[in-house]
Design a protein around this nucleic acid. Sequence first.
DNA 1: GTTAGCACTCTTTAACTTTGAGTGCTAATA
DNA 2: TATTAGCACTCAAAGTTAAAGAGTGCTAAC
Lengths: 351, 351
Amino acid sequence: MLTNRQLLILQLTVKDFIESAQPVGSRQLSKKPEAPFSSATIRNDMADLEDMGYLEKTHTSSGRVPSEKGYRFFVDHLLQPQTLAIEDSLQLRTLFHDKVGESEELIRKSATILSELTNYTSILLGPDTSTHAVKKFSIVPLDQQRAVAIIVTDNGHVENRIFDVPPGLTASEIEKTVNILNERLIGTSLVQLQQKLLQEAKHVFEQHIHQAEQLFSSLQQAIAVEPEERLYFGGKLNMWKQPEFHDFQKMKSFFELIEKGNPAMDLFQKKGKGIQVRIGSENKVIEMEEYSVITSTYSAGENMEGSIAIIGPKRMDYARVITLLDTLSSDLSTALNRMTIGQETDRRQDT
Amino acid sequence: MLTNRQLLILQLTVKDFIESAQPVGSRQLSKKPEAPFSSATIRNDMADLEDMGYLEKTHTSSGRVPSEKGYRFFVDHLLQPQTLAIEDSLQLRTLFHDKVGESEELIRKSATILSELTNYTSILLGPDTSTHAVKKFSIVPLDQQRAVAIIVTDNGHVENRIFDVPPGLTASEIEKTVNILNERLIGTSLVQLQQKLLQEAKHVFEQHIHQAEQLFSSLQQAIAVEPEERLYFGGKLNMWKQPEFHDFQKMKSFFELIEKGNPAMDLFQKKGKGIQVRIGSENKVIEMEEYSVITSTYSAGENMEGSIAIIGPKRMDYARVITLLDTLSSDLSTALNRMTIGQETDRRQDT
DNA sequence: GTTAGCACTCTTTAACTTTGAGTGCTAATA
DNA sequence: TATTAGCACTCAAAGTTAAAGAGTGCTAAC
């Protein structure tokens, strides 16, 4: 369908526009050594490419700009495989240099570095922690009315919530409560906690504890760990490093999009593994029409998955971001998996 | 020094400018029923006020704009005491309706509401938690190499940190460790923790625990609670509701100021109690010249203090913000104090 | 099939004009 | 003496016009 020269010209046009953010004209292209054709020749090819929908003009006599179809073709067929620049991989490496205890920390840092490296906005979705198993319960009374419930999960995450203690409950009864919880509910995943609490622990409570109902309902509330999806942002402000966003209205709407969170931009509509590129309206959301999103996934141990997204202008440096995301997500996976290996062995010993 | 009419005109000028964000001219003012003078009269007075430095012109034939001196005079002498609008106080009240367990939560919410009510950016500085006393220690082993150290303070705050466990340490030894910590260090404030750990607990460790040194240094790291100043922001984006910030560069520099955190803007240079107003260059920082800051303090129990700041354009609605801040800070104080009363009684019982 | 040449289009920039709100000053007025 | 009307003047903002520059499409020559 497309001649070799047309392919070349399309590629050069997209590349040039990605760099310069300016519509590229035939004369300009013809000056490049990679395109040793006259401007007229290029003009003709460009006209054809425009007819086929790969290029667009911003106005009748302007240079060409890639259409979404053009970007899509570029990403699918014209992307030259790239190796990570040395300085990039050095930067990435620093992430794993000083070892960090909690996975959350590592993920947060990844978001930051990614945004610094790309100059786009990065959004990391943490793995769904609700499948983590409870390692230990603890209750610390604060005063007559209140106590802190603490849940430690097997990945080292600590959830805590303050709750009301029924008046007159003695310290020994609280101790008993903790014991019951620990006996009955250790190993339960956070999602199942509510349910199991009812099934396994309720009757035990009623037998042993004074004022069981009140305590129980308080506990139930405290234990209701909301399944908050954890989003980590990097470089929220980066979009204004892009010239096409040097504009008040655009920045404003971008921020509103970001701050509003995922409702509008359901970024992580994961279909299949590997790296996904969504260009402009491929995001299926009107607010995202001006942006491209590149996503990838990483694993954090035993069927726990997180996602990485980079959001930038359609005129994004796809090649670079893709390789960057590729290596980061695999590095992140190994690092996070190593963190949980210990647990696995450990858990096996427990049973 | 100033005639009554001049005072009136100054007041009206400032008020008008605060509302409209437009330089105010003599003719415009003369139309207001509050100023039943001819434009020429007003013009003369304005000229005088300009000579005295209370007003400025943006260019030779423009209307007048308050100078910093003008704002200062307005705030000090011309502010009419205002009562809180009903809808405002209703909004504020919602804060305290549904009771929240942890003080942090309440403070965070205050920041949000304040920014919504004012359309400016709010920054709340949480009380210095490092003086809180430890209520309970706990250590939960995760696997052979790692464990979580948990510290609960008497206000219900939970600090946790993952640390390395020296290989070969037994479960009973960990239990012993926790016991030692709880025996020796409960009631210690977080600031003193490091020091006391060394003084009181080190020798005990050496007597009872195998591999004391390694464990001890791990613990020491884990316990090093950084004295992070906790800042809570509300309405970071609000500045672009102000017309004078409908400008790319200004918004950008405002964000950089905010994100960079306090180094540049040491907002909470508290001098004296009560409400402080700092206008433009009174902030002593070049980056803050365009902004005014109004601060207030609240108490969170027994000589623990937090601060509230509202940052907006110099053309800020001082009257409203001041009353708002006044009532919020006192409401917040009572709420937070009530939270800690229980503890006080409780702590007395302990000793 | 490629390229040179040319007329044409459209944006961008700068220069110029107009309009409107505002000022300062002077002379008249209460 | 304090206020006001009147008038000439200034300046920013908005609109208009003109020129420059980059690009296109098309035709004819190579």
